[in-house]
């Protein structure tokens, strides 16, 4: 299975809003904590290491790292 980079979320605006909402009123550190947990939860759900590595590669390339 390869990383799905085609649109896959039924209601993109609603998803995006809920992502922003869960950081509302949080400090930088609190947001980092939330994001760290989110990444771990979602990574475990995906499980497939090849897919996760593909996602990491794209994320790291775009950050310029």
């Amino acid at each position: 299975m390869a990383l799905n980079t085609k649109p896959n979320i039924a209601d993109p605006d609603r998803f995006y809003q809920s992502l922003i909402d869960c950081h509302r009123d949080l400090s930088e550190d609190q947001s980092q904590r939330v994001n760290s947990k989110l990444i771990l939860l979602l990574s475990n759900h995906i499980g497939d290491e090849a897919v996760l590595k593909e996602a990491m590669a794209i994320a790291c390339a775009e950050s310029g790292a």
Binding site: R33, N35, K37, L40, L41
Partner: peptide, 10 residues
């Protein structure tokens, strides 16, 4: 540190 603490918290 954030990731480590997230693992422990979860």
């Amino acid at each position: 540190t954030f990731f480590r603490d997230a693992v422990l918290a979860l």
